[in-house]
Amino acid sequence: MNRQSAAPSSGSAAKSRQLAQLHSQLAQLSANLSDTENLLRMTSVQAEAMRGLGSWHGGLFMAASKVLGEESVREAGR
């Protein structure tokens, strides 16, 4: 009889260990999801900044092209 009473308690201990492990994994998953959410927010902000930077560069290239184009026309007219 002693063996039969030991079996449920060892099964209960195993179940408790599994639940503790699952709880730990769930906590880690939750932390990772929180980190991912923060990284996505930051990526969104950076993407918006990159878009603005691209617009500035495009404007500078167009202005440089216009200035250099006008200088080429002046030099060709001389």
Results as ranks from 00 to 15, higher is better:
67 V>D: 01
30 S>L: 13
67 V>P: 00
12 S>Y: 06
16 S>E: 09
38 N>P: 07
73 V>H: 00
76 A>W: 01
1 M>Y: 12
17 R>K: 12
45 V>H: 02
5 S>K: 07
56 W>Y: 13
45 V>Q: 02
6 A>M: 08
31 A>F: 12
1 M>N: 09
6 A>R: 05
70 E>H: 12
48 E>W: 01
37 E>R: 05
11 G>F: 03
42 M>G: 00
24 S>N: 06
17 R>M: 14
68 L>Q: 08
65 S>H: 03
64 A>Y: 04
34 S>Q: 10
44 S>K: 04
14 A>I: 08
14 A>C: 02
33 L>R: 08
54 G>W: 10
34 S>L: 09
17 R>Y: 15
43 T>P: 00
54 G>C: 08
61 F>A: 04
3 R>V: 15
21 Q>W: 09
55 S>M: 09
50 M>T: 10
70 E>G: 11
49 A>T: 15
40 L>M: 02
65 S>D: 10
31 A>M: 07
62 M>E: 13
23 H>S: 08
72 S>T: 05
47 A>H: 08
21 Q>G: 04
7 A>N: 15
15 K>W: 14
77 G>C: 14
44 S>A: 11
67 V>L: 03
44 S>L: 08
65 S>T: 02
59 G>F: 07
57 H>C: 09
29 L>S: 10
75 E>H: 13
2 N>M: 15
11 G>P: 00
34 S>G: 08
46 Q>H: 08
63 A>K: 03
32 N>T: 13
21 Q>P: 01
43 T>L: 15
69 G>A: 00
6 A>H: 05
7 A>T: 15
67 V>G: 02
